[in-house]
Design a protein around this nucleic acid. Structure first.
Length: 140
DNA sequence: GCCAACGTTGGC
DNA sequence: GCCAACGTTGGC
C-alpha cells in the first residue's frame, strides 16, 4: 500500500464536506498538473492519503482512502487529466500544521515542503508514521 | 525549439 | 496583499 497527500482549499472542498460524503466518497477532480496526474494514476484502491487544507489552516486534518482508481476527470473537457474517488477514514485528533512539519528534521524533505505547489504528492512510509504520531494517531 | 510574458498556486 | 516558484502560452 502506498501513501499520498492531497491538497484542497477548505473554501472549495473541506474535510468536513468530505466526511459528510461518508462511505460513498467524493471524486477528486480538477487536478490540471502533469506531475499530480502521474500521482493520481499511480494510486491504487486501498491506498491512503493525508487530507491537507491549503491557504486556510495549512494543516493535515484527516486521512482518506482511495476507493476508485484513476479514470478520466469528468470536469476535464480535453480528457487528458484524471480523477480518483476517496472516502474519509478518520480525522487527525490533533491536526498537523505545516509549521510543525517544517520544524521536524525528519519531515523537512516532504514534498509538501519541497514542492509546495504540487497538489497530489507521494508520502513515504516513514513520513506517514511520523505525521500520524504527531497528529495523535497510533498507526496509519 | 527558445524564451519572455503571463497566470496560478500557496506560503507568508 | 505581496511575491516566489513554476507551469503554460505564444511570438519569433
Amino acid at each position: 500500500m502506498a501513501y499520498w497527500l492531497v491538497k484542497s482549499e477548505p473554501d472549495s472542498w473541506s474535510w468536513t464536506m468530505q466526511v459528510k460524503k461518508g462511505a460513498t466518497g467524493e471524486a477528486w477532480t480538477g487536478v490540471r498538473n502533469h506531475t499530480a496526474r502521474k500521482n493520481l494514476k499511480d494510486m491504487k484502491k486501498g491506498d491512503r492519503a493525508f487530507f491537507y487544507h491549503s491557504n486556510e489552516g495549512k494543516e493535515i486534518v484527516g486521512i482518506v482512502e482511495v476507493i476508485r482508481e484513476s479514470y478520466p476527470d469528468p470536469t476535464d473537457p480535453t480528457g487528458v487529466f484524471l480523477a480518483v474517488v476517496v472516502k474519509a477514514i478518520e480525522p487527525m485528533p490533533k491536526p498537523v500544521t505545516l509549521v510543525q512539519i517544517k520544524a521536524d528534521p525528519h519531515l523537512k524533505d516532504m514534498a509538501l515542503v519541497k514542492y509546495s505547489r504540487l497538489s497530489v504528492q507521494p508520502v513515504t512510509a516513514q513520513e506517514w508514521k511520523a505525521v500520524c504520531r504527531m497528529g495523535g494517531l497510533k498507526s496509519g
